[in-house]
């Protein structure tokens, strides 16, 4: 199985370890991973802020980079949504680019979708390696775009629940936004901060030692909030969780 990694600019620039884990996990599952080197950003920050003219060249550019790829795997529900769902909206008045976007869309997968839906792996212990991680309660924050644009609700849960050493404990409101929303958190930092505070309360009530998600952007928000409050709860991207559980000790 061949898969091209679109790592997303936030992982590339701020959380490269998530990209590394993604590659290791996919390789252990027998996937031949490549990294199209010209990739930068999908353009979502501009698209979401209304600056579609800034977003369009980035979209056209990424479409060229990913043209003809068998599978595109993205360790982010939000960036995967941009490619799979929002490009058709952004490029609706550009027939050629729109065609390319529609060609690409069905081949774009967020990481948990790819593992569960394409590789048909629902038991994370199949990823290989010996269990290394200490047993730990993990709670799962659902990324908004992953849930509501991609409709992926069960995949990550199945993988976390079956990861060696991880016990999945649900929050009361796992599907409520953490308050990041890109530009939203910059434009309205106080509203975003209040949403974050509720999310952190919900996480704390689970008694979990870790909060997992499929988006580094959510984890940046949540992790930043946890550290600002001095709470000993770690944030972990799904790719890292699967990688940790499987890295031979």
């Amino acid at each position: 199985m061949q898969a091209s990694l679109f790592v997303s600019c936030i992982v590339d620039q701020f959380f490269p370890e998530v990209g590394e884990s993604t590659v290791r996990v996919l390789r252990r599952l027998g996937v031949d991973v490549d990294f199209p080197p010209g990739q930068t950003c999908c353009g979502q920050p501009a698209f979401n802020s209304g600056f579609w003219n800034e977003a369009k060249p980035l979209a056209r550019r990424l479409l060229r980079q990913l043209e003809g790829k068998e599978h595109v795997v993205v360790p982010s529900g939000s960036c995967a949504s941009m490619l799979r769902v929002f490009y058709a909206e952004l490029l609706r008045d550009e027939p050629a680019a729109l065609h390319a976007a529609k060609e690409l869309a069905p081949r774009v997968y967020e990481l948990s979708e790819f593992i569960v839906d394409v590789l048909k792996v629902t038991d994370a212990s199949e990823i290989g390696g010996r269990p290394r991680r200490e047993p730990e309660k993990v709670t799962y924050h659902e990324g908004c775009h992953l849930r509501r644009e991609l409709g992926a609700v069960t995949q990550a849960r199945a993988l976390i629940g079956s990861a060696p050493g991880a016990e999945l404990v649900e929050m009361e409101q796992p599907d409520v936004c953490c308050g990041f929303g890109g530009l939203f958190s910059v434009k309205y930092p106080d509203i975003s901060g209040a949403m974050l505070a509720d999310k952190i309360d919900d996480i704390r009530r689970t008694g979990a030692g870790a909060v997992a998600a499929c988006d580094s952007s959510c984890l940046m928000q949540i992790g930043g909030g946890l550290r600002a409050q001095g709470l000993p709860i770690r944030t972990v991207h799904l790719a890292q969780l699967l990688d940790e559980a499987a890295t031979p000790g």
Partner: peptide, 16 residues
Amino acid sequence: RWARYRELPRPVSPFR
């Protein structure tokens, strides 16, 4: 105001 609620992210050596 963003930094009041959370840490600012820091650029590191990129994935690429």
